[in-house]
Amino acid sequence: MTTVLGVAVLDRVPLGGGAARVGLADGRTVVVKDGDPQAVAAEAAGLRWLAAAGAAAVPAVLEVEGGRLVTELVAGGAPSARAAEELGRALAGTHAAGAAAFGAPPPGGPGDARIGAAPMRNAPAPSWPEWYAADRVLPYLRTACDAGTLTGGAAREIEAVADRLPDLAGPAEPPARLHGDLWSGNVLWSPDGAVLIDPAAHGGHRETDLAMLALFGCPHLPTVLAAYDEAAPLAAGWRDRVPLHQLFPLLVHVVLFGGGYAAQAASAARAALRAG
């Protein structure tokens, strides 16, 4: 890498996941991510789609060329209750911007995308329960079973969730514009507030983003959720459905990182079945 955006590179600091902080000769510092061209295209389309909602902040896309994505650098900061409140309201606005259908990719984004290092299919479906079972729960369950990391009773409990999704899903909602991989590591706290990075954007259920925020902990999460609920009231019973929405990212972790997450996925499945 000798030039980026047509400018000479002065220094490069790896950030992990194929990304690096790159200093340019014109004084700018940007983030450069190198990877599979299809994955790069999906991420760029997702960032632009989320930005178009005019609500939750995301880094600006500066260039997409083949397997390289260049975005603006997010300045470092610290989480605060005020920023968390603003994030809750902004996330509600992003979700409300909507999507063409459940499972729909961002405009211009490929149907075959990724969540982290795992493949993720984006294909429109008429209803959330049908889509969540067919494209989010069962494919990762099959992969984990084939690898031997999910077996026996745990696999059967997760299959039962997929079978009962129409009863477990709660009130019907329109497709939301999801970040899609909203764990706490993808929330950067800048001096200007929270900025969302590394999306796996698609049309989905808004409770999924909120459940993922809770999965691995998020600073000031109660404040985020309270502000969200005030801006866009959540349907009755949403807290009971958190394990249902966490099942997908947990299955992704089983596929990517092995059986250590299998017990968590099975526990989420049991909790979802009890809540229903």
Rank of each mutant, 00 (worst) to 15 (best):
L256T: 08
R28V: 06
D146T: 08
A231C: 05
A75K: 15
R206E: 03
R121F: 09
G67M: 09
A100G: 15
R48F: 04
T29Y: 12
F257H: 15
P37K: 13
A169V: 11
A84L: 14
L168N: 07
P124S: 11
A56C: 11
S190D: 01
V254H: 02
G23M: 09
E65V: 01
P166I: 12
D181V: 06
P126H: 04
P14G: 09
R239P: 00
L196G: 03
H95Q: 12
N186Y: 08
D240G: 10
G46Y: 10
G88H: 03
A272V: 01
G185C: 11
A214F: 06
R48N: 08
G66W: 14
P249G: 10
D167I: 08
A52N: 14
I197K: 08
Y132W: 12
E63K: 04
D36P: 15
G6M: 10
P124R: 04
A97K: 03
V161R: 07
K33T: 13
P124Q: 08
V64I: 04
P171Y: 01
E65M: 07
R274H: 15
E230V: 03
L244N: 02
V31G: 07
H179C: 11
G76K: 15
S80W: 07
W49Y: 15
G116C: 09
V7H: 08
T71L: 13
E43Y: 00
G67Y: 02
L15G: 10
P222N: 14
L62T: 00
